[in-house]
Nucleic acid binder design. Structure first.
Lengths: 251, 251
DNA sequence: CGCCTAGTTGACCAGGTTCAACAACGGTGG
DNA sequence: CCACCGTTGTTGAACCTGGTCAACTAGGCG
C-alpha cells in the first residue's frame, strides 16, 4: 500500500455517488471538495480494515472492487456486500467505533481515506450533507435487508440473478457500465461466499443462466443478454436501492 | 387500533433503550421527554406500516413484539428482524421516505408514534441525540449483517441458537428478562420465516435443543438452561450489538 | 517450465423441504 | 355448556436442492 498524492478524481467519484441518493447543491459539492482525501493504492485480496479495528478514517472506494465480510470461528467466510467506486463502506465507523466485520479488496484498488474529525465537522455545518450521509448508511442497511431475503428465501438461480441485477443498476448510476455489460471481477468462490452457496453450485448456476441466454460472462465481464428475463428470474425490484433517479436495466 | 392518552412510560422505554447504545445526560433525557408520543394499541398480526408507504411518523415499540418483513412475489414471507419494547423499527423512514418493507405486530402491542418533524427538529438542536439515533440505525444495520451470516453460513441449529442468544441479550439490557428466561411469542412458523427454514425443521431443531438441555420452551417462554453451551453452539459473540455496557448471558 | 488460482464436471451424500396426518389448545357460536 | 374450528405444534416418510469430494482443464505469471 503506497501513499499517493491527493487526486481530484477522488472527490468527483464521491460527489457523483452522493448525487445518486440525494440532490446536492453547489455549496454541498464545494464542501465535499474541501475534504482531505488521502488516496492509497491497495493490492488485490488485501484487508483495508479488520474486524476489531477502531478506525479514525472513513474510506471511499475510488477504483476497484471491495468486499465486506466476516470470518466465522469455523473458518467460513461470509461476504456481506460488494462495494464499487464511490461507495463509503465504513461510514458506520464514524458512530460505531469498533468494526464488527472486515473490509478487503478484490481487485487492485484505490482507496481514499477521510479523517473522522473532518467528516464530523462537516456534519455539524451542513445539515444537507449530514442527511445525505445518514441516508447513505440507511440505503446500506436496505441492501443488507435485501441480501437477507436473497440468502433466506430465494433459490440459487434467483440469488445469483438478483446479485447481477443489483450490481448492474448500482454500477450504472455511477457511470460504470458499458451498454449491457460491466466488469465483474468476483470469482465464483466470492459469489458463493456472498450468496451462501458452494463454488461448485455457483458454477452450475452460472452455466444455467448462460444456457438460458440471460447472461454471458467471460474475461471478468458480465453481459446482460436479456434484462427482462433476468429481472423476472431474480424477482428484482430496484426500489430498495432508494435512488433519486430510479434507473432501469440495459436497452 | 384505538388512540390512547399519552403515557409517561413510553418515553422511559425509549430513554432506557437509547441508554444501552449511547450515554445520555439529563438534558438529552429531557429532550426525549419533550417528544410527542401518541400511543396506540395494535392487535396481534396487524401491520403498522406497509411496504410502499411514506410514513410521516416514526414508531417506537412500547409493549409487545413486532417484526419487519418483506413479502416476495411468490407469496413467501421473509422476516428481517424481531423488535422488542424500546426499539424504533422505522427510524429509517426519516431519511428514506418510502418503506421498502413492512412492519407488523406479533402480539397485542402498544406502539408510540412521533412525528418526523419533531424528530428532525430534535436532530437540529441536539448533536448528542442525533448521534444516538444515527448510531441506533447503524446498530440496526449491524444486526442485519449478522442475520446475513446466520442465514448464509450457519446450520439450522446454530441459526436458531443464535437467534435465542441475540434475543436474550437484547431483552436483558432493556430489563425484559427474568433470571434465565424471556417471553418468546413467535410461533415456530415465524422463526422459520426469519431464519430461512421450514416450520417442520424449526420444530425438529427446537426438539434437538431441548434434548441437548440447552433450552426449555413452554407457554411462549424461553428458558436458557445452559448459556455457555447455547452460546458455543451458536458461535454467538455479542460485539455486533455495540452495547455501551456489554452484557452477558444468565447466571 | 512449473505452479498456483479459477473454472468445470461427475458421483455421491445430506441437510432441509414438502406433503400429510394428527394432537393439543383456545376461542366462538349455538 | 359443549361442539366446532382454526391455529400451533408434532411426527413420519419421500424427495430434492445444494454440499462435498475429487479429478481434471485452462490461464497467468515468475
Amino acid at each position: 500500500m503506497s501513499e499517493q498524492t491527493i487526486q481530484t478524481g477522488a472527490h468527483d467519484r464521491l460527489i457523483r455517488r452522493l448525487e445518486t441518493i440525494r440532490r446536492l447543491d453547489e455549496d454541498d459539492r464545494q464542501d465535499v471538495r474541501g475534504l482531505t482525501m488521502a488516496v492509497r493504492a491497495v493490492a488485490p485480496a488485501q484487508d483495508i480494515v479488520r474486524e476489531g479495528d477502531r478506525p479514525h478514517h472513513c474510506c471511499v472506494v475510488i477504483e476497484g472492487f471491495v468486499t465486506r465480510y466476516k470470518i466465522l470461528p469455523n473458518g467460513r467466510r461470509q461476504i456481506l456486500a460488494f462495494h464499487i467506486p464511490g461507495d463509503m463502506p465504513d461510514l458506520q465507523s464514524l458512530h460505531l467505533g469498533q468494526m464488527d466485520h472486515s473490509l478487503g479488496t478484490i481487485t487492485p484498488s484505490e482507496i481514499a481515506f477521510i479523517p473522522h474529525a473532518e467528516i464530523k465537522a462537516l456534519l455539524q455545518r451542513s445539515p444537507n450533507l449530514s442527511a445525505a450521509l445518514w441516508r447513505d448508511s440507511l440505503i446500506d442497511a436496505s441492501i443488507f435487508r435485501e441480501w437477507i431475503v436473497n440468502v433466506g428465501a430465494r433459490s440459487a438461480t434467483r440469488r445469483i440473478s438478483h446479485l447481477f441485477c443489483e450490481l448492474f443498476i448500482r454500477l450504472k448510476v455511477v457511470g460504470l457500465t458499458d451498454q449491457n455489460s460491466f466488469v465483474s471481477p468476483m470469482t465464483q468462490g466470492d459469489i458463493g461466499e456472498a450468496m451462501g452457496l458452494s463454488t461448485v453450485h455457483v458454477n452450475r448456476t452460472i452455466q444455467y443462466l448462460r444456457g438460458a441466454q440471460l447472461i454471458a460472462l467471460r474475461d471478468k465481464r458480465l453481459y446482460i443478454l436479456d434484462w427482462p428475463g433476468l429481472q423476472r428470474e431474480a424477482m428484482f425490484d430496484p426500489a430498495y436501492l432508494h435512488l433519486v433517479t430510479p434507473s432501469d436495466g440495459p436497452k
